[in-house]
Design a protein around this nucleic acid. Structure first.
Lengths: 155, 155
DNA sequence: GTAGAAAGTTAGCCTCTACTAACTTTTTGT
DNA sequence: ACAAAAAGTTAGTAGAGGCTAACTTTCTAC
């Protein structure tokens, strides 16, 4: 049946779907799924860096408030981040970034800031820009980020 | 303690974190999580519409190939989409969109196409544009989409 | 028309994210 | 200093998304 579609059909009406082979599209989706897996970690690390910068420490209660989730969700997520080597912490104490975590935070902050400036430069209001940047920043390739930066920085 | 931070602290050093109240940031993250929940459904519906358009039907095996996942994953996802009223189907048969599903597909296709044209207009190569559009399209507000469209359509 | 191939489903497993309820630890205020 | 409040953790639940292995149904080619 698949053979039928690939031969009989696409022979006479070359389609968008066939022009873009399944492999290529699958790769795109796999990339997106990969990005999705890292999004949460990036959100946490970025937020933790912010909180440390602002308040000298990152407490689970503040992380939970900023993310809009409950405390146990944060406890679990932090356990995962610790497992992944992005943070260190002791039970009942606040959270610190490892070198790796700090590097990731810096990268995230940079991306976030570029996307935000880009959207505002494009004419978006600051609030919507902030909302959209939060979602978009995880799905922007290096190349796109460079273009965003050029646009935002242009005279 | 939270009270302490809100009063004692922000009174003397107004910080980024405090300027952007926890509620507002939490809203942003909740928005992103909401978007994430719909992403898969949107990917499926968009792809199903494509396949129907190209081949007259959308078979699980083709959906799986295009998304880069295994057949049982598709079976499960389709059950969810049917539960949500986006598709109809009979066991062992291919998939059809409901009116609601068709509307969503149309909306997604429109967004996808605008984001893609925008990125290309910005100077991105077609392949990277396709990869990034796949991730970005789900996180673009109406306002941002309008700006993207203006930019892509400008003379 | 039927046997073998292809497609689809089911069952069972895993991880991640979120929740509530109940518990422990730490902080705070008197 | 100690009781009450706040913060943090643990345990248990649920759903989404992914997988493999094993099974059933449909298709196809002879």
């Amino acid at each position: 049946m698949a053979a039928m579609i690939k031969s009989d059909f696409s022979a006479e009406l070359p389609s968008v779907t066939d022009e873009r082979p399944a492999d290529a599209r699958a790769e795109a989706f796999q990339g997106v799924r990969e990005a999705r897996r890292n999004e949460l970690a990036e959100d946490y690390v970025e937020l933790i860096a912010d909180l440390i910068h602002e308040h000298g420490e990152a407490r689970p209660v503040d992380i939970a408030a900023q993310l809009g989730v409950r405390a146990p969700t944060v406890t679990k997520a932090l356990a995962r981040l610790a497992r992944e080597g992005l943070i260190t912490r002791a039970k009942y104490r606040s959270v610190f970034l490892t070198d790796e975590g700090r590097a990731l935070a810096k990268e995230c902050r940079n991306r976030h800031e570029i996307v935000l400036r880009f959207l505002i430069r494009l004419g978006l209001d600051a609030e919507t820009a902030e909302l959209d940047a939060e979602g978009i920043e995880h799905h922007v390739s290096e190349r796109t980020l460079a273009l965003f930066k050029s646009y935002a920085d242009r005279p």
